[in-house]
C-alpha cells in the first residue's frame, strides 16, 4: 500500500511540474518582446527638433524621420560661389582648389573619383551613378547606392546614431556627420581612458 501511495505522489508531482514549467518559462524577456506588438506613442514626450534638420525622403518602420542637415556645415557652401564666373588669382589657386582633400575611399577599380559623386553640371548638387541630382542634405541617397546594406541598417536603426532622444520624433545623424566622405574610415587615435580588469 505505501508503495502505491508513493507512486501516486510521484505521478502527481510530475504532472504539477509539467503544468508549471511553461508558465515559468513564459516570463523571459524574449517572450515579453515577442508579445509587445502594440504601437507605442513615441510622441508622448514632445522633443524639440534640432535647428538644422531635414525630413528624410524615406520612411523607417515607425514612419517619417529626420536627419541632421549638411549644407550649413560645409565650409564654403554654396560651391557655385567660386565654381562659376567668379575670377580668382592664380596665387590663390592652391588654397582654393581643394588641395587638402585626399581621396581615401574604396579600392581598386571601384575607387570613386570627384565626379562619381559631385554633379559636374551643377556643383551645388551631388549626383549618383544614374545621374540623378541629389541634395547635399540628402547625401544618404548617394552613399546608399553602393553601401546599400549600411543604408538599410541606418534606416532601421542598426547603423548610425540617433540625436539626443530615444523618444519623440526620430532624428538621426547623416552619413557625412560621422564619416568624411572623402576618407570615410575613422581616423586612428588614442583612447580617452583605460579599463581595469573585470575583477578589479
Amino acid at each position: 500500500m505505501p508503495k502505491l501511495r508513493l507512486v501516486t505522489i510521484l505521478l502527481l508531482s510530475g504532472l504539477l511540474v509539467l503544468a508549471v514549467a511553461p508558465a515559468l518559462a513564459g516570463h523571459g524577456i524574449m517572450e515579453k518582446v515577442k508579445e509587445a506588438n502594440e504601437p507605442f506613442d513615441s510622441l508622448q514626450i514632445d522633443t524639440p527638433l534640432p535647428k538644422n534638420t531635414v525630413q528624410v525622403k524615406e520612411e523607417y518602420q515607425g514612419g517619417a524621420f529626420w536627419v541632421l542637415s549638411r549644407k550649413d556645415s560645409i565650409g564654403r557652401f554654396p560651391c557655385s560661389r567660386c565654381h562659376g564666373k567668379k575670377k580668382s588669382f592664380k596665387r590663390e589657386g592652391a588654397a582654393l582648389a581643394h588641395g587638402d582633400i585626399e581621396l581615401v575611399h574604396g579600392q581598386g577599380e571601384e575607387r570613386p573619383e570627384c565626379k562619381s559623386c559631385h554633379n559636374e553640371k551643377n556643383l551645388d548638387l551631388l549626383s549618383d551613378k544614374k545621374d540623378r541630382e541629389i541634395d547635399f542634405d540628402h547625401s544618404y541617397q548617394l552613399c546608399g547606392q553602393c553601401h546599400f546594406r549600411q543604408k538599410s541598417d541606418w534606416v532601421g536603426g542598426a547603423h548610425g546614431k540617433r540625436h539626443t532622444y530615444w523618444i519623440g520624433k526620430r532624428v538621426v545623424w547623416n552619413c557625412a556627420t560621422c564619416h568624411d566622405p572623402h576618407s570615410p574610415r575613422f581616423k586612428k587615435r588614442w583612447p580617452s581612458t583605460y579599463s581595469l580588469p573585470l575583477d578589479k
Partner: peptide, 17 residues
C-alpha cells in the same frame, strides 16, 4: 554609433530592429 538604446515594447524602435 556602436550603441543602440530604446524601448523593447515599441515594435518600431531601433532596438527591436
Amino acid at each position: 554609433g556602436s550603441r543602440v538604446f530604446g524601448n523593447l515594447l515599441d515594435p518600431d524602435s531601433e532596438i527591436r530592429f
